[in-house]
Design a protein around this nucleic acid. Structure first.
Lengths: 332, 332
DNA sequence: CCGAATTTTGCAACCGGTTGCAAAACTGAA
DNA sequence: TTCAGTTTTGCAACCGGTTGCAAAATTCGG
């Protein structure tokens, strides 16, 4: 129904090639020709069919945006930044939700059917093999919020989770806590494993401090609340490093319910610095993850892979920093 | 690089047409042929190029998912449900973020270049003309969370915002409040206008109750908080109907800060019933918007338009209901 | 086993573009 | 004005599929 190249060519009285050339930049067209074609095109309301041209150029400008994380509010920001960043570069995000999909093969097949130019996998809770499966299928891929590896198999952009664990530990030590705990996300998530490792590692330098740990069932309010309620049945630790902010907020709610006071009786530090963490009625001390840098960098990387598909895999880690609010007691 | 129809045909020793037919259902292929082709196809790892076939079939199975609402946590759920629902039906969401884009023309052009089969516009804060622009461009469109009109120009699926306003008013009356207020979202949003209208309308039946109103700058925590802080400088109303839950939570935070008690001193009722409203530390009484029904219905509608593109525009409104939690005082 | 009816297959044109190549149209210097 | 050099244009083949049509193969009744 929409007008095609041929329609424009006929109306302008020129060849189809000429029309095609006026719409691809870098092609040689005389000013006179260009005028004729553009006139006809606007009269007809023509705009070139991106899919048809992809057939010969081999580029669709489609980028698969793959995630399983449709429950953590921080991912709304992630999607916002990704879609805007991609759009600005003329790329189009094809969104894939694999919340219930366990087998990467299906997603891969689908994304190849649509000839995506590249794939961004955005999630810290996916098995590392998932991103690799795309690379093995010959699709340029970047794993955002993925796990750091010293010799990565695919491009990884994210944070150093172990370092975040150490950072949290140092912060608690600095504030004089002597009885601390790690309250992680699901034990199967690599992000939790790494944060846990870093946290414990740092505390080996402080043998006088007692440490305990436990894991929530998910990175969710309810899981955090439930886990913290369970911890509160015994004598709680002085301070908790929670797996992420949502978990922290659940934990805060549990502490409040049990009549204890934050930060007086129990301290809490989260991770992410989602928008909500700054809300005055939450006011969570947390470790800020530089989301927008991670996303900018991911996009830059995927764009560069469009030119150079077998660029050597690289890990890009961005530094985090503590954002002090009201859920840890002040330094003495 | 990936194998093509021709490769499979050659390897199987059959014509390209034969291969094509084994991959399009409803076509006539003998079992023997099918076996040969499938063998060759799996050996080569072939899967048909959806874009190439769209060229002749005229169907891409791409659906534009257009929104400007990347800040309200409820939209994460919206995206989750939309992507899953579309995927289940073999459709692929092409996500368009028009947060900064003011001119629909650009989005429309882009979506036509990619030959989307249809478009879902998901937002209550877009001018109604936006969805219509798609229809005028000949693209099947459904406006989810759009404004009700008795003779709609495009398909609209959502709630009856005026009725929600009336519902909120009735609820406040029922609980014996005598001095109530509407604290809306941005005055330019049609959803706010309609909720306001319904609210006031219902209260004309109760001339003994005093009413006031004001509007926040956005549907956001900070806007809600700021607006409520301003209201609290004078003698506040007994109860507020807030434009949505995020706004309500901001308002709650303001009330808490000013040393007043909810629901003792000030009552608040929101709208949406986002996940967070049920969190124990928020516990917001609110009006539930049946998101998943709205989305299911939207998808069903867009799917039906693929068969019948000029189906007569229809408005589908789903009933909301009050979810009682802890921010309104109990019925006397 | 034959011939008509039915099914399966391949040919070739087409979907809406792009692009290498050679012919046509320009340009400018002599 | 002529001619070599440069730019612009059109032809035709191609990208990876689909599909109408007619030929080939199969099925079936007699």
């Amino acid at each position: 129904m929409p007008p095609t190249l041929k329609d424009v060519a006929e109306r302008a009285g020129v060849s189809r090639a000429a029309v095609s050339r006026t719409f691809t930049d870098g092609a040689s067209v005389s000013p006179k020709m260009r005028r004729k074609v553009e006139k006809a095109a606007t009269e007809l309301g023509y705009s070139p069919n991106a899919l048809a041209s992809s057939l010969t150029t081999g580029r669709t400008k489609l980028i698969g945006l793959v995630s399983n994380n449709f429950h953590n509010p921080i991912f709304l920001e992630v999607f916002d930044l990704f879609t805007r960043g991609l759009q600005e570069r003329g790329l189009r995000p094809l969104l894939v939700n694999l919340s219930d999909e366990t087998d990467p093969a299906n997603s891969i097949r689908m994304l190849r059917q649509y000839s995506v130019d590249g794939v961004v996998v955005a999630s810290s809770t996916l098995p590392p093999g998932f991103a690799k499966a795309f690379r093995d299928a010959g699709v340029p891929v970047v794993h955002s919020f993925g796990r750091y590896a010293s010799s990565p198999e695919v491009h990884v952009v994210g944070i150093d989770n172990a370092e975040c664990g150490r950072m949290a530990a140092r912060e608690l030590v600095r504030r004089g806590y002597r009885d601390v705990a790690f309250l992680g996300g699901p034990e199967s998530a690599t992000s939790t494993q790494d944060r846990f490792r870093g946290f414990m590692e740092e505390l080996t330098h402080h043998p006088e401090i007692s440490v305990r740990h436990s894991f929530a069932e998910a990175y969710s309010f309810n899981a955090g609340r439930a886990e913290m309620l369970a911890r509160l049945r015994d004598k709680p630790a002085e301070a908790y490093f929670c797996g992420d902010d949502v978990l922290s907020i659940g934990a805060l709610s549990a502490v409040a319910d049990s009549g204890l006071n934050v930060p007086g009786d129990v301290g809490i530090i989260g991770l992410n610095d989602m928008e909500m963490a700054g809300w005055e009625n939450i006011n969570l001390t947390t470790i800020r993850q530089p989301i927008s840098q991670i996303i900018d960098s991911s996009i830059e990387l995927i764009v560069s892979m469009l030119e150079n598909p077998d660029r050597y895999p690289e890990a890009r880690l961005f530094p985090c920093k503590v954002v002090e609010r009201g859920t840890l007691r002040p330094v003495a």
